[in-house]
Nucleic acid binder design. Structure first.
Lengths: 185, 185, 185, 185
DNA sequence: CATGAATGAGTGTTCATTCAT
DNA sequence: CATGAATGAACACTCATTCAT
């Protein structure tokens, strides 16, 4: 069924990257025929979009699990970003698929809800960390965007030049968050 | 000859992205036969690497042109990063090719010189902005990495969600630089 | 389906040799598309291996048909070798394919069963002709190898220089067999 | 010049087999341009024929060197055949080229002289071994053909199934020769 | 509901050969 | 005498997709 196919595709992407995801291989891994995919997905593109959404679901779950119980605003923001960074680094191949999918989509359609929810998580954590009363909407939006950009940038760099060790990256991430939050005062 | 092919390929990439760059199309755009490409490039991969290098050459040229004459360290660093950011935003498709190429290569071979030179430019500007005497090598390396990551992150985000206007992004970039530099004290 | 393709390929090989067997031509001869071959054969190599096996099947069938009922050991051996020789001379192009295929394979994989069965036929006939009690395993193996070599050699020569008439060759084959068998005493 | 090209081609064939001999690679190995080959050889086919002739020249030289001084007829015949067998086993890739070339040619043109000379060497040795007075021309021709066939067959088998050790093969060769010669009486 | 059969378009790549210079 | 430039034809192969059943 739908889920079975999706998770088989996920497994291929995780192992070999989305360039190796072909409907043939997919149909080979599960016991379905290549045609069967079209019963549950309109397209290969549709499949990939669902994969991307699945990625965001996992990311959202991780954030819910690891950060919701943290009450201190700064700590929560820090935790959310770390969780994000963790996800990207543990799911590199999947994350690349998510990026590619977004790029195709953003010219046409609105964000899918899973992604929206992820953005909201970061928005909320950021807003709480800064305090609603202290700042305008634009200010918050920019800070939030910036924080995402930093994680995204560190992650991208990590994919490109494998030169920097993980602990250094964690420290850089923390420093950046700290410095961004402090820039308020 | 070599250059003609290279620029024809560049043009395709700029227009439609590197996924649309096939040797057949390339040979069609110029009046050459598909085989001719192999007289000047060993491979399609070799062609793409040369394209990536061409991209870095352009980036380096822009940095040389726009930043070399700036003497104030902070201003120069700011200018370098802005130029970088500009390049990414004006050459999105080419930049994507450069990223993909780096990802393929970084598992095997050393950086090509054009890229090395770009990294050096940022390194130098960062070093000057912080002042050599004030900080250890590791510290500088991290700051530098961080700055690249920020530009990279903002650029990636810009490719993904076209939602934020350019002037806001510039401001964010400046803020981030300012805050990173100030974090020294 | 599988068989149809196989026999179409066989026909091409028989007519023009295996060098002229391309997937395009093959697909052209039957009314299938070039892609269709890949539905039934993993590879061109796989197709050629199946062709070679088909060759050995035919050879085995001929031996079964023409020799099984012969009880006198020497006569049977003579018949087996003649049948072998006949096959090679009537299926020259196919036999060349079989040789080439074997050369590719013998570095990697075990003999395919059809070939094994052919070897066994010769082994058995030889063993019976010499009588098990009279000789060691090594002796038998050598004689057997030698007999195959003679047929093979006559066949090869026949492919190379078409100079000798068939009846002469038959006589030579018989002489050789006779002389080899007699060499026991 | 002619010879330089020829020996460069020979080297490629010896190393990787005649399937890997392309004019491109050849021109790459020497410092000539791909076009240069056409100044000295009409064709790739012409080049390959010359390669085959070169092979026979080497074979003839070996026979001259190692066998001419042997006076006892049987010993000489034995030596000639051994030398032949040696050549085939030390120059497998080249020998395959020679065979393939012959197969192409024998439908069109007469034997080239080097090959003729090789055949003559065997003919003479055989004639001497049997004694001219004892036998008809047809008889001699058949014996001679047979001897070549045996070497050829053992060599082919050796190429196909690498299973039998060299010393066994030598023994088989000697046995066969012995038995063929003795069959006279 | 599900599939086996089939396809058309496309991929990168290699090759022997020619011709103007 | 020699070559650099160029080509046309062919190659094996992969892919997403469709459709009759």
């Amino acid at each position: 069924m739908h889920k079975e196919i999706l998770y088989a595709a996920l497994s291929i992407v995780r192992d070999e990257g989305h360039h190796s995801l072909s409907l043939r291989r997919l149909a080979g891994n599960i016991e379905f025929s290549p045609t069967a995919v079209y019963l549950y997905f309109k397209n290969k593109d549709a499949l990939m979009i669902d994969l991307a959404r699945l990625g965001y679901q996992q990311l959202n779950s991780s954030i819910d699990r690891d950060c919701k119980s943290i009450n201190d605003p700064r700590n929560r923001l820090r935790a959310v970003l770390r969780t994000y960074w963790d996800f990207v680094n543990h799911e590199k191949k999947l994350y690349l698929l998510m990026q590619e999918t977004e790029m195709k989509l953003n010219e046409l359609e609105p964000m899918y809800p899973e992604m929206q929810r992820f953005i909201n998580s970061i928005n909320q954590a950021t807003t709480m960390a800064y305090g609603k009363e202290n700042c305008t909407d634009g200010f918050l939006k920019r800070k939030c965007y910036m924080l995402i950009a930093i994680v995204q940038g560190l992650a991208s760099l990590n994919l490109l030049h494998k030169g920097i060790d993980v602990s250094s990256q964690f420290q850089m991430l923390d420093d950046a968050i700290e410095s961004l939050i402090d820039s308020l005062n």
